[in-house]
C-alpha cells in the first residue's frame, strides 16, 4: 500500500517540477536584463558578478 503512495507522490512531484521548469524556460526574460555570465549558473557560482551593475559602478566611480 505504501509503495502505491510513494509512486503517486513521486509522480505528482516530478511531473509538476518538470512542467514548471519547462514553462519557466519558455517565458522570455524582460528586455533590460543582461544575460547571466556562464559562471553564475547554478553550481558554477565561484565568480558570480552581474556584469551590468559592474559597469554602472565603474562609471560612477570615475
Amino acid at each position: 500500500m505504501e509503495i502505491l503512495y510513494i509512486f503517486i507522490v513521486l509522480a505528482v512531484a516530478v511531473s509538476l517540477f518538470c512542467l514548471i521548469y519547462y514553462l519557466n524556460s519558455k517565458t522570455k526574460k524582460p528586455d533590460n536584463c543582461s544575460s547571466l555570465p556562464e559562471e553564475c549558473e547554478s553550481c558554477k557560482v565561484i565568480f558570480c558578478r552581474n556584469k551590468k551593475t559592474d559597469k554602472d559602478d565603474e562609471t560612477k566611480e570615475k
Binding site: V14, F17, C18, Y21, Y22, S25, S42
Partner: peptide, 10 residues
C-alpha cells in the same frame, strides 16, 4: 534537453 536539470536532481 529542456528537462535535463530536473531529471538530474531527481
Amino acid at each position: 534537453n529542456e528537462v535535463r536539470i530536473p531529471v538530474f536532481i531527481v
